[in-house]
Design a protein around this nucleic acid. Structure first.
Lengths: 224, 224
DNA sequence: ACAAAAGTGTTTACTGTACACCCATGC
DNA sequence: GCATGGGTGTACAGTAAACACTTTTGT
């Protein structure tokens, strides 16, 4: 078995791919961009991504690209998985570190239709470029799992929110209904949320009390 | 913002670092090797690792190095996390995909003291080379978490095992005692194990029935 | 007045937990 | 015969789940 030369070791181009979720109009959506690199991928879509530079970490690279491409400031970010199939990019060897990012729906309007990106329903995705279907799947699995034992849901919410809005996040992502009273009972028992004193008015119904998460950072516990 | 040249994009050396756990003499141990690259790391230890080659995936690279270095055949393997700090290797930019590997204790004897490797108690680790303390910590966290909702424990066991041995895995990794009857009740309720009909004799006590996992692959559920 | 979401407790079923003794073997 | 881990059931407590009506607002 021969030892590879120094040059042969620097074969890799490093990139990131980012699965950005939001909830918009009661639908879990993922941000897609157009991909057109004939003859491999013609008029397809994929998740946004970008190359890692020699002096930045993968995390920093994701933040840089998010800021630059769409002005997105992640409300939640975490590394998902590293994809290293030899042929995942037909143009050459690209190893990609995938990330999961959550943004509140407000972040949409600002850069909706900013060029070639758009938000797509996660439940009816087309065939995506590269291995991006697998990447989105990984993101969905992680999101669904973490709802059950962390406060990751705050990635979809504004700093202050109603308990109805929080419950809706759970119902949309997990595609099941929860009992309002039991849901709140658990939230309070775990001391996850605190009332801010404010209330949300404007809808044709009784005003809802506003809450915030007790800790700003993501907490872990047994919820579901 | 200038665009990096093609050369500048191939800055990275890709590597893997592998956290290999086993249980030996009722202690959770991790495989360490000697690291000696003056003036940065003199007479230190780290987890085994190796470079990824141009035509292999990260997974394949780990399997190749495991087989070559110590003849280890992983009983369980999963990707942990990708570490990309710019200065994690003082000799140059190395991005490393870390893996978690479990092996049954039998795998130890064959390559115990095969050169420069040895098994170290995970509860009293010294300062390791590079960022390897962080890598081992990540591995421990993943292992502990997955015991609670998967059959990952079979990574530490032979294909057939006694329920006492399985319970011992949980007690050693999670550092807490379980009630024998409740532990078994849950196992059976979830249909995780099936008796093989065989029994384990030889110890100075009543023979123990042998069991195997119902599914060979790792399953997921709510156990703890 | 009506539609729409907010808010609030109790009962019941289930699941988890605590607990102790006899058994079969090797030495 | 004694030390060692194997094997087994029940009672109680705590948690999860099911369930319905009143309130407050905007239109």
């Amino acid at each position: 078995m021969k030892k590879p030369s120094v040059k042969e070791l620097h074969f890799a181009v490093l990139a990131t791919d980012v699965v950005i979720f939001t909830i918009h109009e009661k639908v879990l959506k993922v941000l897609l961009i157009n991909v057109h690199i004939p003859p491999f991928y013609k008029h397809m879509q994929g998740v946004p991504g970008g190359l890692i530079r020699p002096h930045e970490t993968a995390d920093a690279s994701v933040l840089r690209h998010l800021k630059g491409k769409a002005g997105i400031v992640p409300s939640y970010i975490e590394q998902l998985y590293t994809f290293s199939s030899v042929k995942r990019d037909p143009r050459g060897r690209v190893v990609s570190v995938a990330y999961l990012v959550l943004v509140p729906p407000e972040a949409i309007s600002k850069n909706a239709e900013t060029g070639k990106t758009h938000w797509h329903n996660t439940r009816s995705l087309p065939k995506l470029a590269y291995d991006h279907n697998a990447i989105v799947k990984k993101g969905l699995e992680r999101l669904e799992a973490k709802l059950g034992y962390s406060t990751i849901a705050q990635g979809f919410l504004k700093p202050e929110f109603t308990l109805g809005e929080l419950q809706e996040v759970y119902e949309i992502v997990l595609r099941k209904k929860f009992d309002k009273r039991n849901f709140r009972k658990k939230l309070f028992a775990l001391n996850l949320v605190r009332p801010t004193g404010g209330e949300k008015r404007g809808a044709a119904n009784r005003p809802a009390a506003l809450y915030k998460f007790a800790k700003r950072q993501t907490e872990f516990f047994q919820f579901l």
